[in-house]
């Protein structure tokens, strides 16, 4: 029935992996476990190591040290049984340029026993790809669509998406998200998605992994994250606010003695009330969306 139920081990596990490219350290002592059925949003700034992590999960790149397991198999030994369950959409995937989209789909389909023609047809329609055109004639956005088609149509259990929609327009992005949600409902697949289009990520992820300069800085349920980051506005008509706050959960502060804007990271529901009382001010609490959280997540390590 549910394919993920039959696999006892988590689809992806990284244990203290370090990846070095010459002088550059892409990942540093990185440990992560992605359990089945989870939709992980991979957040980080450019060059943080997201693509490297996804490539390691896909077995395309091997860690310099440490171990990574995809479906319980070390990345270096991934073979047909694992690869049929794995779907990868790379940021700049190179296809066979002279083939038409149709030919390429047929070619890749011949390698997967479970290639879903119905799904393929639906996706081709939803993403508005012309199957008769050659890959070489396609724009960047259309090539991205082809990469998505090639990575998704065999209904993988683990789907690794590296900036899958950076070149897609909002309408196609919305359709793609719908299709991804459908995959989640029907296959219960595990997804790891890295994207800078946070609006879209927000709609599907249930877990956030933050990377900064190759290090893991956040690994938490999205709900929990949303409930722990907030913006507090302190207003004191009497001008009783201090010039700075010493509370460790306050990440940023701007304002003067009458008004202060704080970005905080705390799960303590009573903290806002206590702080307001301690400085004799009124407080307004506003939750943050992912875009507002992003700089706080991806630079919390640097701050500390």
């Amino acid at each position: 029935m549910n394919p993920t139920a039959s696999s006892p081990c988590p689809p992806f596990v990284a244990r203290q992996i370090t990846k070095r490219y010459d002088q550059h350290v892409a990942l540093k002592d990185f440990s992560l476990e992605v359990p089945a059925g989870r939709v992980v949003g991979l957040l980080g700034r450019n060059g943080a190591g997201k693509t490297t992590l996804l490539n390691i999960a896909a077995g395309l790149v091997l860690p310099t040290s440490g171990e990574s397991f995809t479906f319980g198999i070390p990345g270096a030994n991934l073979d047909s049984p694992q690869l049929t369950r794995l779907g990868v959409v790379q940021q700049e995937g190179r296809c066979i340029e002279w083939m038409t989209v149709r030919q390429h789909l047929d070619f890749n389909a011949s390698f997967y026993p479970g290639w879903d023609r119905e799904l393929e047809k639906r996706l081709v329609a939803a993403l508005e790809v012309d199957p008769a055109r050659k890959i070489v004639q396609l724009s960047t956005g259309d090539r991205q669509k082809v990469n998505i088609l090639l990575g998704v149509c065999h209904r993988p259990e683990l789907l690794l998406l590296d900036e899958p929609m950076s070149a897609l327009d909002p309408i196609v992005r919305a359709r793609l998200l719908d299709q991804l949600l459908e995959r989640l409902r029907e296959d219960g697949c595990t997804v790891v998605i890295s994207s800078h289009i946070l609006d879209d990520v927000e709609k599907i992820v249930d877990w956030i992994v933050g990377i900064d300069q190759g290090e893991l800085v956040e690994d938490r349920a999205f709900d929990e994250l949303q409930e722990s980051y907030a913006e507090w506005t302190l207003i004191s008509p009497h001008g009783s606010l201090p010039a700075s706050f010493s509370e460790p959960y306050i990440l940023s502060h701007q304002g003067d003695e009458r008004q202060a804007l704080l970005r905080v990271h705390t799960r303590d529901a009573g903290a806002a009330g206590r702080l307001a009382a301690s400085v004799q001010a009124e407080i307004r609490v506003r939750p943050l969306n992912l875009e507002e959280m992003f700089p706080l997540i991806t630079s919390s390590r640097r701050k500390a």
């Binding site: 395309l60 049929t84 779907g87 995937g93 190179r94 066979i96 890749n108 090639l150 990575g151």
Partner: peptide, 14 residues
């Protein structure tokens, strides 16, 4: 040409 494409590493039994 096929082997030297980015998806080649993921095609099972290629």
């Amino acid at each position: 040409e096929v082997m030297h494409r980015s998806f080649a590493a993921f095609l099972p039994g290629l």
